[in-house]
Nucleic acid binder design. Structure first.
Lengths: 106, 106
DNA sequence: ATGCTATTTCGATATTCATGGAAATAAACT
DNA sequence: AGTTTATTTCCATGAATATCGAAATAGCAT
């Protein structure tokens, strides 16, 4: 992880539409969701959706796998881990300031 | 925290120059750094720097405090906490996937 | 009030981004 | 080969961003 990659990923998530898409994919878990399902859930034109997905894929935050005619999209957790880790490391380099907000999980 | 705020903060960090500035401020800790010092460290024109800082301030990631003629900038840790917490919560809503990468810090 | 230092705002330009309809491609089925 | 479904690429357009010199402002010192 470096500042170039981190900033590109942050920028990819720094758009409400894309962040919403990513959130949906994260919540969908390992099964993922097809492009068409994402389109229905978010009610955006196919071409617009495709542009946003490309951005998420190009930055490594999302992966796609073809299943016949449909494309399954999945959040790529390792990338998210690395990004959050980068932010946390930067923050905690000098100050112990990160307090996990979801104590329920691990 | 909501998706609007989160995406605006992510976008603010999603620019290599701003992420670099933020990183410098985070590492500077509670003492913060003056705008002039940031300018020297990053070697960018004053007006450009000012625009970037405004963006970080408007999104709540950075605060400024006047000390005579100089303005001291500080990373606002609670905002960073909330943002990282949002990402982690989203991620861990369905899957336990976040592994803290800096085990040294608490 | 004038000058000096620190920083922001103004104004202008080039680049990138977001959006979405229409056409093209991919993959299966007939 | 032709059709249908799923998705992307092409193309165009308006909006937002990034950059930075020059002028303006803020605050202190003289």
């Amino acid at each position: 992880m470096n500042i170039e990659i981190a900033s590109r990923q942050l920028e990819a998530l720094g758009n409400p539409t894309r962040l919403g898409l990513y959130r949906t994919l994260v919540r969908a878990g390992g099964a993922g969701l097809s492009v068409g399902t994402l389109q229905e859930k978010h009610e955006i034109p196919a071409s617009t959706l495709s542009h946003h997905l490309r951005r998420l894929i190009d930055t490594g935050l999302v992966t796609q796998e073809r299943q016949a005619t449909t494309l399954i999209c999945r959040a790529h957790y390792p990338s998210m881990n690395a990004l959050v880790g980068y932010l946390v490391d930067e923050c905690c380099a000098d100050v112990g300031c990160i307090v996990p907000s979801s104590e329920t999980a691990a």
